[in-house]
């Protein structure tokens, strides 16, 4: 196998990794917000169930969760799972990362002084306005470093999609390494992941800088 064949095959794998990455970000970040609100709910039952959900998502291996999301519908309900491989991966990743994001958001919410809510209330802002105009922008600034961490972890975690044999970059690296009895694919994969994470870190740094105008 020539290096260019290897690179183009792995490049294709990288596109699949990117698809997992972007779709997971797209779904898990807003979902994390919902979970955070449920977690902060004053209803004991709601916050309790959410707490258990977060504990499960954070306390069990993502690999196991992916298997559960994919095979669960068949084993629990006898449903056909044809063509469900990719959706299962996205669901698995999103549900898992949403739990982590929810906890990050919750931590961010707790950094906002009570006075901000009170000032907004006295000025007549509605609850929705208060959240979106006053609280959320400050939460975003507060949580950016943790979010960057989480996103970088996600870049690397996309390789876990191999569990469901979705041919993302790491699966391809493994397959090519096996067929070529060579270590090179792993090194290429390493370089790809590194570049991707460098790009993420760079982008997040830019966002952090853009929000640096206030303390």
């Amino acid at each position: 196998m020539t290096l260019s064949t290897m690179l183009s095959a792995m490049g294709e794998g990288m596109l699949r990794s990117c698809a997992i990455f972007f779709l997971t970000i797209l779904f898990s970040m807003p979902l994390g917000m919902v979970i955070m609100f449920l977690r902060r709910s004053r209803l004991k039952l709601v916050s309790g169930i959410t707490k258990i959900y977060i504990a499960i998502m954070r306390g069990t291996p993502l690999m196991l969760q992916l298997l559960m999301w994919y095979f669960g519908p068949y084993y629990l309900f006898g449903m056909s799972i044809r063509g469900y491989r990719f959706p299962a991966i996205i669901i698995g990743f999103s549900m898992n990362y949403a739990a982590y994001f929810a906890e990050i958001y919750r931590g961010g919410m707790e950094t906002i002084p009570q006075g901000q809510y009170e000032a907004a209330e006295v000025l007549g802002y509605s609850k929705t306005q208060t959240f979106f105009k006053i609280i959320l922008p400050q939460v975003i600034k507060a949580i950016l470093p943790s979010v960057t961490n989480e996103i970088i972890t996600l870049v690397k975690d996309t390789s876990l999609a191999f569990t469901l044999a979705y041919n993302e970059m790491f699966s391809l690296a493994k397959q090519i390494a096996a067929s070529q009895t060579s270590f090179t694919p792993f090194i290429i994969a390493g370089v790809f992941y590194f570049i991707a994470n460098y790009a993420v870190a760079f982008a997040m740094e830019r966002i952090e800088k853009a929000l640096d105008y206030y303390k």
């Binding site: 002084p113 006075g115 901000q116 009170e118 000032a119 006053i134 600034k141 206030y214 303390k215």
Partner: peptide, 9 residues
């Protein structure tokens, strides 16, 4: 307020 509570952003 005692602590001003301006919106920092």
């Amino acid at each position: 307020f005692q602590q001003f509570n301006l919106f920092p952003h």
